[in-house]
Design a protein around this nucleic acid. Structure first.
Lengths: 193, 193
DNA sequence: GCCCGGAGGGACCGATCGGTCCGGTACGCT
DNA sequence: AGCGTACCGGACCGATCGGTCCCTCCGGGC
């Protein structure tokens, strides 16, 4: 034996690919650009990822992990107040689209970029929004909402609207009213008439 | 003199391009595919449109016209009840994303597909969402909302959410609660306590 | 009937696409 | 030291990209 493969190779490639995909879109980025930014050999990329489609799917999986971490961090401080957690998830979304470099929701955008049903990235994207919806339903139930499914769907719609509206109308756009609206919805649905 | 240019050429090309762009995304569609579907010569396309970017912009302008017509038709029957018109605009959005072939909102998607600030299609896309927001503000004002700007932003957010959530979660998704939510918001904001 | 010009279609351009393969280099273990 | 391997970088593949150009065919005004 002579040399052991660097264990962080996959992460390095994914770092480069994520930056590029996020700001330009997966379709607009060639693998050569990923190679160049990563500074690795092309064969190494193809050892770690079978195809560009797989790389895009891995990119979305990483987005999913980041998103989960953000959501966890947003709701952790209020673990005993699920109504508050619902509002905090909305606030976290607003903060994300308000970040300087935010271009579009990676899940919605990538899902639209690859219309073919079998594309591996689509599974990840759909899985993400389903998980989010389920999470909202769970919180709505624990918050004692009259109709947890409806409240969860209202908030899902609201969060989707934040991601969609943010990039086009900016920080001063409709997203500014989102947190207050979420608060109203939660309050209206969780007793406290 | 020998022959006069066919006046419908531009429309024919735009017909073909619109179908393809709508279902696959502008970046995923090559001009050769547009040519093939249209059945025209490549030189004709480049006589009508200076570049692909211009073609994409023209596609969005046509979307804009269609959208305006849909909105006009949705609110025309209730010209004396602006609160009702606000709700009808939301209903029109739900119906659009519920249509079988609907993939993504052309404005949001194309805006994300071409991140370069100077791209001609971006102006059209941003212009559209601004017009929608302005329209909602106007209606909210005429409906006598306490805070027309806030109500308009709430509904903008809601409509954006419908377009964003529809393609991924389908007809049974959160969009089903949108009209009822819009009705609540309008009612709450326009007196009628 | 002739002939001009619009239209279809395709050859062609350089660049880039996703993907494969190979050669040189440098590193780590024995 | 020397061997073996991981890695970088680039050559290379066929296909397609956006875009230019040209040839052929056909239709309409003189």
């Amino acid at each position: 034996m002579a040399r052991t493969p660097a264990p962080d190779t996959r992460d390095r490639i994914l770092d480069a690919a994520s930056d590029l995909f996020r700001e330009r879109g997966a379709r607009a980025v060639g693998l050569q650009q990923v190679i160049d930014r990563c500074g690795c050999g092309k064969n190494v990329l193809y050892r770690e990822f079978a195809s560009k489609d797989e790389l895009v799917a891995a990119y979305l999986e990483r987005c999913q992990e980041e998103w989960s971490a953000i959501m966890d961090a947003a709701i952790a401080p209020h673990d005993d107040a699920p109504e508050r957690q619902l509002v905090e998830l909305v606030r976290a979304a607003v903060q994300q689209v308000s970040a300087p470099g935010f271009r579009a929701c990676p899940f919605r955008f990538t899902h639209a970029e690859f219309p073919d049903e079998g594309h591996p990235a689509r599974k990840v994207a759909v899985d993400h929004v389903r998980k989010l919806r389920a999470r909202l339903r769970d919180l709505a139930t624990r918050a004692g909402a009259h109709d947890p499914r409806t409240l969860a769907d209202q908030l899902t719609l609201l969060i989707d609207g934040i991601y969609s509206s943010g990039p086009m109308l900016g920080r001063r756009g409709p997203a500014t009213v989102a947190v207050a609206l979420a608060d109203d919805l939660v309050r209206a649905s969780c007793g406290r008439h």
